[in-house]
Amino acid sequence: MIDKTSGGQHHILTGILFICGAGILFPVMNGFAKFLGESGYDSLQVSWARAFGHILFMLAAFVPRFGLAMLRTHRLGTQILRSALLMTSNLSFFFAIITIPIAKAASISLTAPLVVALLAWPMLGERTTVGRLVALGVGFVGVLIVIRPGTELFQWASLGVVLSATCYALYQILTRRIAGTDSPETSAIYSSIVGAFGLMFVLPFVWKTPESFRDIAYFCSLGVLGALGHYCVARALHYAPANIVTPFQYMQLLGSVVVGYLFFGNFPDVLGWVGAAIIVGAGLYIGWSQRKAS
């Protein structure tokens, strides 16, 4: 039940503002990553900067408050697997947006909640319904409209975003699994550990020294923007119920359209908007049906 008091309404509004903030931060981060990729920096280097900056920012933010004890985990194997999935998701997305518009990539990536709903039954035992299965099918029709395989507008890089969304969905499912054993701060640190330290082994083969202060600023901003975005999501869920703030995560699509237009002059065509609307509608229905069942 939603709190009708002025204090409860204030908290809900605060949660909505936080989730909308994340919808601005993530597209800007992706815009900087696209700039770097188009400037000749390898996606592996860009993904490493994203992960390593995330680790540094989280350590600076959390260690003074929680101490080094926050690094202790009861599910090390699961944490490593989560981190590997997030690294693969980021790497696939950064690779894809070198060649496709950010708004198109964002539309496809919004299938992550649909994949979570599909896999939550076999992996978490969360039973689904016929209506949700139909919504899943409709959502993936929306993806086909955005990608348009078999036409001259199809780009193979779009499949990289599909891989990114799938890995991110698996990452979310594993995050649910360990929510009762590890603290959110611990999971936040471990989420980027594979990308931050695992990619160091390939950096010597792909490294390109930043050529300008602008490029250095973009590299440094990736981890900060990503970490702040995830922090905004966490704070949003602290202030307001998930079923209220979750629909506002689709602000990320509008943020991506704005960033794509202002930074690169890209704007979705009519079918792109239609496909995105179908994906969002399917996701909202699944969220509504879960709320109704709870």
Rank of each mutant, 00 (worst) to 15 (best):
R75H: 11
I108F: 00
F95E: 13
H238C: 09
L76F: 07
L56C: 05
I147Y: 06
V138E: 06
G260T: 05
M251Q: 11
H10K: 15
F66M: 10
L25T: 01
T73M: 01
L254I: 15
D42M: 03
L253M: 14
L91R: 03
S221G: 03
A22I: 09
A49C: 10
M251S: 15
A179W: 09
G195W: 00
V146Y: 07
L228H: 07
I286K: 05
Q79E: 00
D3M: 04
G275Y: 06
T14S: 13
G195T: 03
K34D: 03
T88Y: 04
Y171G: 14
K292E: 12
A217N: 09
L118D: 01
P27I: 01
M123D: 01
A112Y: 05
S192R: 06
F26P: 08
F57E: 08
V161L: 08
P64C: 00
P122L: 03
F62R: 03
A277P: 09
G7L: 13
T166F: 14
A49V: 03
Y239S: 05
S191V: 05
A69R: 11
Q172G: 14
S191M: 08
L170T: 03
T166H: 06
W48I: 03
F18Q: 06
G226D: 14
F154W: 09
P210F: 00
A112T: 00
L91F: 08
A51H: 01
V130A: 14
F219E: 11
T175L: 15
G7E: 14
F52R: 12
D42L: 02
A106Y: 00
I12F: 07
G15I: 11
L144T: 13
F205V: 04
S183L: 14
T181N: 14
W156G: 12
V206E: 10
I216Y: 13
A22Y: 15
R176S: 13
W288H: 11
N266L: 06
G21R: 10
H54K: 08
S294T: 13
G21Y: 08
T209A: 10
I80Y: 04
V233D: 02
A234P: 09
T5Y: 02
L225P: 06
N90Y: 09
R82H: 02
W207S: 06
L59D: 01
K292H: 10
L144V: 12
T88K: 02
E185C: 10
V143Q: 08
A120S: 05
A277V: 12
V138Y: 09
A293D: 08
S109A: 14
F35Y: 15
R127Y: 02
R214V: 06
A61F: 11
G255P: 11
C220P: 06
A69N: 11
F205M: 07
